[in-house]
Measured scan of single mutants.
Amino acid sequence: DVEPGKFYKGVVTRIEKYGASINLNEQVRGLLRPRDMISLRLENLNVGDEIIVQAIDVRPEKREIDFKYIP
C-alpha cells in the first residue's frame, strides 16, 4: 500500500502538459504535476526514466495518487 509522505521509486510512463504518469508497479500509478516538481522541469523528463517520488495525496477509493518530486 502507498502511504502519504513515503518515498518510492517509479518509472515515467507518459508525459503530458498537465504532468507525468508515474508507475510504481503494474497495479500502482499516479501523477506528478509540474507544480510538484521542485528542481525538475517536465520537459527534462523522458518516458522510461526512473525517479524517486514522494506520495503526497493518496485516494484509494478513486485509485488516484499524487506525487511530488524532491531531489
Rank of each mutant, 00 (worst) to 15 (best):
R14H: 11
L40E: 05
P60E: 08
E3I: 15
K6M: 09
E3P: 15
N44G: 08
P60R: 08
I15Q: 00
V47K: 02
E3W: 09
G19W: 14
F67D: 02
I56D: 01
V47D: 01
V2H: 04
V53P: 00
L42Y: 06
V53D: 00
L31E: 05
E16H: 15
K17Q: 11
Q54L: 15
E3K: 14
L32S: 01
K62E: 11
V12G: 00
P4Q: 11
N23H: 14
V28H: 11
G10T: 02
N44I: 06
V28S: 05
I38C: 12
Y8M: 01
A55W: 04
D1P: 12
P4D: 06
D49H: 03
P71F: 08
Y69P: 05
V53C: 07
R14E: 07
G19N: 03
D57V: 13
Y69H: 04
I22T: 00
V11H: 06
I22N: 00
R41G: 10
G30S: 01
A20D: 02
Y8S: 00
A55P: 03
G30N: 02
L40I: 11
G5V: 04
V12W: 06
E43H: 10
S39H: 13
K9P: 03
E61Y: 09
P4L: 14
I70Y: 11
I15M: 03
I22M: 01
L45C: 04
T13W: 06
K17H: 13
V11L: 09
K6T: 06
K6C: 12
I56H: 06
T13L: 05
I65E: 02
A55I: 14
P4R: 12
G30Y: 04
L42I: 10
I56G: 05
T13Y: 08
D49K: 02
G10R: 00
E61P: 07
Q54E: 05
R14S: 12
G5M: 07
T13K: 04
T13A: 08
I52R: 06
K68A: 15
L45M: 07
P60T: 10
E61H: 10
D57F: 14
R63C: 13
R35H: 12
D1F: 14
D49A: 04
I15N: 03
V2E: 04
K6Q: 08
E61T: 10
Q54W: 11
E43A: 12
I51M: 02
D36S: 04
K6R: 13
D1A: 13
I51P: 00
R35Q: 13
N44A: 11
A20R: 01
L42G: 03
P60G: 10
S39T: 10
V47G: 00
Q27F: 15
P4A: 13
N46L: 11
S21V: 15
K6E: 07
Y69G: 02
V11E: 03
P34A: 09
E26Q: 11
E64P: 03
E16I: 04
V47N: 02
A20M: 05
V2N: 01
Q54P: 00
R41F: 08
I65G: 02
I52F: 09
L24F: 04
R29F: 13
I38L: 10
G30E: 03
R41V: 10
T13G: 06
G30A: 04
V58T: 05
G5T: 02
G30V: 07
N23S: 15
T13S: 10
R59F: 06
K17E: 12
K9N: 05
K6Y: 06
G5W: 07
D36W: 09
I65V: 11
N44W: 13
Y18A: 11
V58A: 05
D49P: 00
Q27C: 14
L32I: 05
D36M: 08
K17L: 11
P60M: 09
E61V: 07
I51V: 06
K62S: 13
V58K: 04
L32W: 03
S21I: 15
E64D: 06
I56R: 05
A20F: 07
D66R: 15
K17C: 13
E16Q: 12
E16F: 15
E43I: 07
V2M: 05
I38K: 08
R35V: 11
N44Y: 10
R63V: 07
V58P: 03
E3F: 12
Q27P: 05
V47P: 05
E64L: 10
Q54C: 12
I52N: 04
K9C: 14
P71Y: 07
D66S: 14
R59H: 08
